[in-house]
């Protein structure tokens, strides 16, 4: 300890730090997708939204000097992509999964296309809140440097959980997701509900992207997402469309992402490729254990094409 090292404690600390640092994009995308899927639509395009959000946040932060404007821009970009998805899906006989894949390509491509000049400049980043002030150990303080977006995400999960159950909007979304006929019978436009749900989902996913480029890893480049958006969409199904479970799943994924590098730093060097794949192996294992062929997934919106 005298030399400033904390030895094996690095691993749990890195997992904790990783859970906080890496989980936020997963959290925002999965919560956003949770809203969309609860309304009966799946938007696989959130990978593109995430990347597009990251790029636009970085660009706006760089141009205006305000990272918060960047976050807002990312959200708006995401909402627009969500509107595009919902718009195309509202045409008859259009498959929402396919539209998602199309928008994944389109969003990613557009972000790369427009983002070329943004790789080199440094944009103002989002500030961090120091939650480790009580500790003298710099590693602990570093792990507990938290961005307010993370806190918003953590707060959003129980709020959504509550909103789905008790608010009028939550009920409307769930009705649209469970039975479009019922929603229609109540005099509501299913398409409009889904449009709004997809736009909100895109808004959140865009903000998740802004976290990537403006906080951690904290710059714009083309390898930034490496599939986090699509993984987060998978997390929603894994989390059974429950916002609270989305929160736990995102934290677990974030922590698992830190596992590979942390293990190497304490001398566990063999098989680092397999450790790096730990989040995926774990998810698959948990799904195999917890799913059942006898019943459909609890919590699955009945209108969702992927579970029908």
């Amino acid at each position: 300890m005298a030399d400033g090292s904390i030895g094996l404690w690095t691993v749990p600390l890195a997992v904790l730090g990783g859970a906080i640092r890496v989980s936020t994009p997963f959290l925002f995308v999965s919560l956003g997708e949770c809203i969309t899927e609860r309304s009966g639509r799946i938007n696989l395009g959130l990978e593109g939204t995430l990347v597009m959000g990251a790029m636009s946040a970085y660009g706006i932060s760089y141009l205006t000097g305000s990272p918060w404007l960047g976050v807002l821009a990312a959200g708006i970009t995401g909402a627009l992509l969500g509107a595009l998805h919902a718009g195309i899906c509202s045409l008859p006989r259009v498959n929402d999964i396919a539209v998602g894949i199309a928008l994944m390509l389109f969003g990613t491509g557009l972000a790369f296309y427009l983002g070329k000049p943004l790789i080199e400049p440094t944009a103002p980043r989002l500030p961090a809140i120091d939650f480790g002030w009580w500790s003298d150990i710099p590693q602990v303080r570093a792990a507990l440097r938290v961005n307010v977006l993370f806190l918003i995400g953590v707060a959003l999960a129980p709020i959504l959980y509550w909103a789905f159950r008790t608010t009028r909007w939550g009920l409307l979304i769930r009705t649209a997701g469970e039975s479009s006929d019922a929603a229609r019978a109540m005099g509501h436009s299913v398409l409009l509900i889904r449009l709004r749900a997809t736009m909100v989902g895109g808004f959140l996913a865009g903000i998740g992207g802004s976290f990537l480029s403006l906080f951690y890893p904290g710059s714009w480049n083309e390898g930034l997402s490496s599939g986090q958006g699509i993984t987060a969409v998978a997390l929603v199904i894994f989390a059974r469309w429950d916002p609270l479970l989305c929160l736990w799943a995102s934290l677990a994924f974030g922590g698992a992402a830190a596992l590979g590098p942390a293990l190497q730093s304490v001398g566990v060097t063999s098989g680092y490729h397999l450790f790096n794949a730990a989040p995926y192996i774990l998810t698959l294992a948990i799904m195999i254990i917890t799913c059942s062929p006898k019943r459909t997934l609890t919590g699955a919106p009945a209108e969702l094409s992927i579970t029908r």
Partner: peptide, 10 residues
């Protein structure tokens, strides 16, 4: 990038 940032932190 995420792995590189995690490695740096570790």
């Amino acid at each position: 990038p995420v792995k590189e940032a995690e490695a740096t932190n570790s």
